[in-house]
Every structure is written in structure tokens, then in C-alpha cells.
Design a binder for these strands. Structure first.
Lengths: 212, 212, 212, 212
DNA sequence: CATGAATGAGACTTCATTCAT
DNA sequence: AATGAATGAAGTCTCATTCAT
């Protein structure tokens, strides 16, 4: 029908805008991006933007939702407390997956960081989206702990710190090229996986280091 | 004579502006702060600002320099490759010191993060200032490694990751109250120090975890 | 056949729009009403509006015509100069009728006042519609005057002033709730009728007041 | 001093803007006036406007305050219940004064009417400003009534109606040239004063008209 | 040194109107 | 007849920066 075609064209326009927004945000960051820049990039009229989004915050939130979903997609695996064991290879895959997705998102991370600092709404969204990820990690740590396989540390806090290590690595790489450009190379993956593994060990408590 | 007095008054005005700027940045963040807000808080005329600073970026850079200097002050200790040993208590003190200083700076961290994301100049400054800190950490790791006390990981990358864990903890606590408000409590200090210690161990390599 | 049905549907749609417009104008006033608000209220597509009306001015003019016709309907009574006498009861009924109709139109009066102030076209329409009413009043006064039953004042001007008293009462009541909400209560009716009656008297000329 | 001169220039700029605003409002009405139109007329930069006024509503409120003050200035006469008598000459002077001031304000009345319909804030201001006037009138009527010199009507309502007759005359004359252009000619003054006088009479009650 | 009035660019958002389907 | 996506003009307001005093 005519209706279908119209719907398709509308969806196409919206996608054009979303894609344009992603590019512009990646290029200029969150604040420096104006609605006009987005509609220019999307080759639509200025007013068309407001047909699909309430404002800049709104587009960004939509972009972020898909980005984060993709990022944490592999986190939604079932978790059976009985059979679950820490598996360094699985952990490494997780890290690798995270980095690969992160890399595929290009320079959007800087804008994301900016946006969550500037917009309380986006910050809330973001915290909610990553909570799933952090909670999964914390749950695993709690299981290890209950079996005496993990030290007496707050699983939730440790999860925050380990996940944060990864997040911050992505942010600084993407934003400043530090410690290097954002890539999912083996060195980065192995090192992070290694640090995670050493963190999740019975022994590694205070004093039981290389020195002992 | 008059010249001296003038200089004094000028210095006083500049300090007023700097202090006002610190407050306003901490309250509102970087972008949301306008020059007018700073001069209002400093009770000076709007134009006076431009006698001392080129623009917002400029004040912020000056503020940041002192802030970061304070933060990394304790890092400038001498380092003798022969006698240096990893000392968990020293490491804990370092973490504690970092957090204490961080806490004393209040909510400025959110503004700092914003500023480095938005202004390339400030980002460069910041990277330079923290490099000292990261380098010190990397140097230590390299020494342990040369004595076989640390695994075969890139010391520089590990330094980035471990320091980043701390930085990100400060940023998220200060900016979003996650995992909790920014404070230098024992739990946070102990946990971070513990993770650092487990990272800097011979054993903690891939596969040698709680499982073994 | 099909043509008739079409016409019916068209008329129905137009009525939907008119009724929706009346509601929205009454709620929001003239300027604050957008075409989109009307089509939303009428549950039609935005574009449909332009099949029936040129623009907002046009709908409003159509609405106003019916509203004013109703308001002044009772004015079209025949007038025989010979037999016509001033009858206070008739006058009171007139005032009462005017107020009752006004009340039944609800909050549309504010929008009407706005519209005539903003749109010259609507103003002209309105002036034309009320002219009938004012003229009727003026004619009556002229008859009284010709019989020496009314002072030597310009009948047309007095008609304007007396009718204006009533109009303004309706406008301010409907728009601001001053002197009270718009209602056709006896007090308002009696008071206005009384003032009209005292105006239309031989005696009430300058100086012949309570004092004499 | 320099300071004084600056203040003078600032005040001059503000007056320029106020005067320009008055002109533009009178010409185009309230809504149709944009801030840009005002600054154009005042030959200042667009931004300058916001140095002196919060927005269009704000300038208008300031203009209205002075206008209304001038209009009702003669109302603030003392009122001694004992000695006060209705004096047709005084009443006529009042009407004349009101009309003269009204005329001097030119076409601003249309904008005023528009503004009070559109902006609740301005409406409130206006109601407050005219309350003084209406109250004065009502007080006088109450005094006459207490001496049996005025019929048994609600003084407050009668005040509203009589004052409204005058207001509406001004508004319609200024806005639509009906019944004629706004002028303070004798005919208008005499007629209104006459109607007021006949209203304020013991006799003029229902039934005691030309017919009796 | 300090002041603060003035400037004007630029971002945001709304909405009447058109037109292809 | 009806639809609703797209357009783009117009108005709002903020703020960094300059400059005469």
C-alpha cells in the first residue's frame, strides 16, 4: 500500500538522521554537535529532525541504547551457580568481545562520556544499561566467593573496578589515543584478561605477591 | 611603590577569579560554566576576567595544573632500581593518598573530565601531567620484571590499566556517585590496593587462578 | 451515489474540524492554537485541514459567524416606529437573552477578542456582524428621541456605549473572571437592565441627578 | 565621573528601547512584535535588549505600568465620606482627563488588550492597576447609596460596568476606529458623562424612564 | 587596573503550508 | 478525500569578547 511505502520512507529518513548523528557526534563530540550539523549531514531540512527526536539528548539516548546493547549483548548468558566455573578462556573471550564491539563503534565513546557528564538523563540511562553488565560480573564473583575461590572483597566493588578498568581503557584509547589507538589487539586483550584473572584468585591478597 | 601595590591588587584579583572559577566549575561542570558566572562569583566586572585569562579554557588549564600537581605530588619520590622492593603497605599508602587528595578536590573531577573531552589543549595538558605518574608506575613494574618478580606483561600498559582503575573510580564516584560517593574510606582503599597487589604478582598469569 | 456519500463524509469531516476548533480555541485562545492542535483534536490528518479552510483565520471566521448569529438572533425583530414603545421588561429580556447565549458559548470570547485584535479580516467581519445589533439599538433610541422621550444625545454613540457595556462585561467575565465568572444571573441582568433604563430617560441629563 | 556618564548612557539606551517598543507595539500589536523589531527600531544590537528586559512580556509590563499610572493618576484624590458630593462637573472632568490621556497614548491600547489576553502575568498586572480606579468609583457609589442618593444596586458591579463603558470605548476607538477614531472631543466626553450621571441617580430605576 | 555596556553570532524550537501518495 | 512526511522561515535567548571610559 501507499501507507507501507510512506512508513518505509519515514523509517529511512529516521535512519539517515541516526546515522548522520552518529557520525557527527563521533567527529565533534556531544556538545559541539548542533542539530543543524546533523540535518546537514543527513541532507534533510532542519525541521525534519524534530519529527523524529525531541532534541539532541533524545537522538543521543537512542544511539546510546543500541550501542550499549550491542556492547553488553554477550553478558546476558545464563548463570547456573552450581555448574558455573571461572574459565580464563571464557573471560578472555568476553574481554575480546567487548573490545571488538567497542572498536566497531569508533570515536563515539568520547561523545558518550561527554554526554553522560552533561546530561543527567543520559547519565541515568547509561548507568542503568551498564548495571546489567556489572551485576553479572558481581554475581559471578559472589559465586566464587561462596565456594571459597575468591577472597573476602566486596564483589560489587571489585566488579566496578575491573569493569571500570576496561571501560576507561576504551574511553582513553578512543578519546586521546592513550595508551594507544582503540584496537582489539591481542596485547590489550591478553593483558586485561590476565589482570582480571589475577584479581579473581584466592591467593592474590595483600602481602601474597611476588615478594612471597 | 604604587607599582607594588598594583601588582598585589592584581594578584589578589586573579586569585579571586581562580577561586571563584574552581567553585563554579565544581558546581556546574565545565561547559555549563560561563565567564559571567565566574565574574559574578568573584564579584568583579565581566571584563576583568579577560585581563587575566584568555578564555574559559585558559582558567581551567591553570586550575588543573595546581590540582593535578597536588594529586601526583607524592609520586615524585626517588627510585633506586637496586634497593627498591614492592611494598604492599607503601602501595596502600599511595592509593590512600591519591584518594584523599581526590576527595579534597570535591566535585571538580567531573568538570575536569568534561574539559579534557572538549578541549584538545586541556586534554594535552592533562595527559602530560599524568604521564609522570604513569611513568613512575611503569618504571617500578619494569624493575620487578627485570628481577623476575613480575609476569611478562607490558609494564607501561599495565601501569595505564591499574592507574586507570583508580582514576575511573574517582571520576565515576565524583560524577555519578557510583559505586558510591567519592570518599577515601578503608574499603575502597583496601580493595584497590588488593587488586594492585594481586596484579603485581608472579603467579597471577593466565590459568593460574583460584582453580589451581 | 458515491458522490453523495463523499459529500456527506466531507461535510462530516468539516464539522469535526469546526467542533474541534471551537474547543481548542476556547481552551487555548486564538494565537496559542495551532492547526496541528485542531487536527489532533479532530482526529484527522494535518493536511486535511487545508481541504476545508485556508488557514486559522478562515476557520475562526466561520466559527465566529455562527456564534455571532446566535448571539444577535433576537435582535432581528421588526420595528414599527409608530407603535414601538420602550418596555423595560422587553429590555431586560434582551439583556438576559444576550447573556444566556454568551454563557452558552463558554470561553470562546477570549479567543474572539484576541482574533479581532490580531486579524484585520476577522475584525471587519465582527464589526459587520455586530453592526446589526448596534443599529437596531440606535434606531430605537432615534425613535424615542423623535418623540421627545430621549435626551439630545447621539443615538448611535449611545447605542455603542450601552452595547459596549454589555460586550465588555461578557469579555472580561469570560477572559479574567472579572467582575465574576461569566454567568447569566439575575444580579448582572438586573443591574445592566437598570443602567440601560436610566440611560434611556428624559431626565437623566447632566445635573439632573440624585441631587436635584 | 565616568561612572555617572556610563549610567546615563545606559539609561538612555533603555529609554531608546522603551520608546522603540512603544512605537512598534502600537504599530503591530503585541504578538506580531518581535524583539528584533524593537531593537531594529531602537538601533541597538539584538542582544542589548536582554540587558534591560527579560523578554517581550517584561518590556510590555514596564510600558503598561507607566501608561496605566498616567491614566489613573487623577483617581488618587482623597475621599471624605462626609463632605463628598456627586458633582457632574467633576465627573465630566474625570471622563475628559481619562480620554485625553488615552488619546495621548495613541494606538498602544490595541496591543494592551492583546497582551492581557495572551499573557496571564500581564493580565494580572493590569487587573491590579485598574482595581484602584474601579475601587475609587465603587467607594463613591457606596457613599451615595448610604445617603439614599443612589439606588439599591451593587456599587462594585455598577463601577465595573460604568468604567467598562469607558474602557471599551477607548479600546474600540483605538483598535477599530469604532465608533470613531480615538479622540477626546466634547461629544464623546459629554455623552459618557451624561450616561454616568443618569446612572448615578435615585430615580433612574427600572420603570422610571422616559415612559413615565 | 577595573569597569560594564554593547555587540552579534549561533543554537534551539515551533509551525504554517505543500505535495506526493 | 485523506494522509502525513518534509520543508524552511521566523522567533527566542545566551554568551564570549571587545572597547571606551
Amino acid at each position: 500500500m501507499a501507507g507501507v511505502k510512506r512508513q518505509e520512507r519515514a523509517a529511512a529518513t529516521q535512519n539517515q538522521l541516526l546515522e548522520a548523528a552518529r557520525q557527527v557526534f563521533a567527529e565533534r563530540g556531544y556538545q559541539a554537535t548542533s542539530v543543524a550539523a546533523i540535518t546537514d549531514a543527513a541532507s534533510t531540512a532542519h525541521g525534519t529532525f524534530y519529527l523524529y527526536f525531541r532534541n539532541k539528548e533524545d537522538v543521543f539516548a537512542q544511539l546510546m541504547a543500541t550501542t550499549m546493547d550491542e556492547l553488553y549483548a554477550h553478558t546476558l548468558t545464563e548463570l547456573d551457580p552450581e555448574t558455573h566455573r571461572y574459565d580464563p578462556d571464557v573471560a578472555r573471550d568476553r574481554v575480546a568481545g567487548f573490545l571488538q564491539v567497542a572498536v566497531s563503534q569508533g570515536k563515539i565513546w568520547r561523545a558518550l562520556l561527554e554526554a553522560i557528564l552533561v546530561s543527567p538523563t543520559i547519565a541515568e540511562n547509561w548507568l542503568e544499561l551498564r548495571r546489567v553488565f556489572h551485576q553479572g560480573l558481581a554475581d559471578r564473583l559472589a559465586i566464587y566467593q561462596s565456594r571459597g575461590e575468591f577472597r573476602d572483597l566486596d564483589p560489587s566493588l571489585v566488579a566496578q573496578l575491573l569493569a571500570g578498568m576496561l571501560e576507561w581503557h576504551v574511553f582513553t584509547s578512543a578519546s586521546f589515543g592513550v595508551p594507544g589507538p582503540l584496537e582489539a589487539n591481542d596485547k590489550a586483550i591478553d593483558t586485561i584478561a590476565d589482570l582480571w584473572a589475577s584479581a579473581v584468585s584466592v591467593r592474590g591478597s595483600r602481602g601474597q605477591t611476588a615478594a612471597d
